[in-house]
């Protein structure tokens, strides 16, 4: 671990100023990702600005029937919050599917969204990685690709975003409140993360020194049901091979398989939490049969590129979407 100075910020503006004013400064929240990277040599900041003392730890009702979750709220808290469980089950489910109880007590909302890929080469400073060391090459391509991206990847990077929470927020049409040196701004959640392109070193669209202060959730559509289905090797405490956040608004007609609205987002397949808009369109106004679901996912995956190591993700994704939508239409949760 390289030496750094440590400061504890007492208000958001001074935290932002401290980091914005120094190119090698970073924010420290829960630490579950940053401290890991400090030890691995993946992160080598000169200054660590601790933001856990800021008053960003509330979960508050929004004026529009939505919810505002402070950036410093620990992952276990929204998962246990009655409002989240009732109105945003996909969010509670995604949080509960992530990491372990101990880590959920530690990891913050913003830290979860800003956590970095678990690509084994990114975490191994003895191997080339464009995300860690721009221009050094991508070791994952042609290497261990089991967790690699199949959508939106580039020749420079096939890393996937590891967050479960982020996938859930994609179908909730959340927005992120960001404080920068020039003040506060809001951006749609879908604009927070970015595809790797030729600069995989940047995971997000945030400028250096910008601090996420909150996540805002609009009220869910009336009658919406939602869930999160995660497929992983172990039954618990493992990152997703693929995951699906699904939100369904049943139609007024009798058959629960007829949906007025379907929203889908995929985890474990891209550098960003992937909103499957093409699949959603294909499923709008259609009876949710296995065949229709498979066809919709295939449509979404038309742009996918797979390798020997990731070929399985097509079939797994189809199956996971089937399982998620079946759970929402039948109300019976069979995969846990």
């Amino acid at each position: 671990m390289t030496p750094f100075t440590y400061t504890r910020a007492h208000d958001p503006a001074s935290a932002v100023a401290a980091v914005a004013g120094r190119p090698d400064a970073v924010f420290l929240a829960g630490g579950s990702n940053l401290v890991d990277h400090l030890k691995l040599g993946v992160a080598t900041p000169g200054e660590v600005v601790d933001v856990t003392g800021l008053a960003l730890t509330g979960i508050e009702d929004g004026s529009d029937g939505g919810l505002r979750i402070g950036a410093g709220v620990r992952n276990s808290d929204p998962a246990a919050d009655a409002r989240v469980r009732e109105r945003y089950p996909v969010l509670a489910r995604a949080l509960l599917a992530g990491a372990s109880p101990q880590i959920r007590h530690q990891a913050s909302t913003a830290g979860n969204l800003l956590q970095r890929t678990r690509c084994v080469y990114f975490q191994d400073t003895t191997t080339p990685c464009n995300k860690r060391e721009p221009g050094s090459g991508c070791s994952a391509i042609g290497g261990y690709e089991r967790y690699a991206a199949i959508l939106g990847a580039s020749p420079a990077c096939v890393a996937t975003h590891p967050s479960d929470l982020a996938v859930a927020l994609r179908v909730l049409d959340a927005s992120v409140v960001v404080l920068g040196p020039d003040g506060e701004r809001r951006l749609p959640f879908g604009e927070l993360h970015r595809l790797p392109g030729d600069d995989p070193s940047r995971d997000t669209t945030l400028a250096h020194g910008e601090l996420v202060t909150a996540v805002e959730l609009p009220a869910p559509p009336p009658g919406a049901r939602s869930t999160y289905v995660k497929v992983r090797d172990r039954a618990s405490y493992a990152f997703a091979l693929v995951s699906v956040a699904a939100l369904l608004v049943p139609s007024d007609a009798g058959d629960p398989r007829d949906a007025a609205q379907v929203r889908l987002a995929f985890g474990g397949v891209a550098h960003v939490p992937w909103r499957a808009t093409r699949a959603e369109e294909a499923l709008t106004g259609v009876r949710l049969t296995d065949e229709a679901i498979d066809a919709a996912v295939e449509l979404e995956l038309e742009a996918a590129t797979t390798s020997e190591g990731t070929a399985y993700k097509r079939a797994m994704l189809r199956g996971t979407v089937r399982a998620a939508l079946r759970e929402l239409s039948t109300g019976e949760r069979t995969l846990r």
Binding site: Y6, R8, G31, V35, D36, K39, L40, Q102, H105, Q106
Partner: peptide
């Protein structure tokens, strides 16, 4: 493991179970 992947370092910290390996003491 020293990287939050095994749970052996768990303590009760300010009332909750917590990993100590991924926490800076100064914080």
């Amino acid at each position: 493991c020293d990287h939050g992947q095994c749970g052996s370092c768990t303590v009760i910290l300010d009332g909750r179970r917590h990993l100590t390996c991924l926490s800076l003491a100064v914080a």
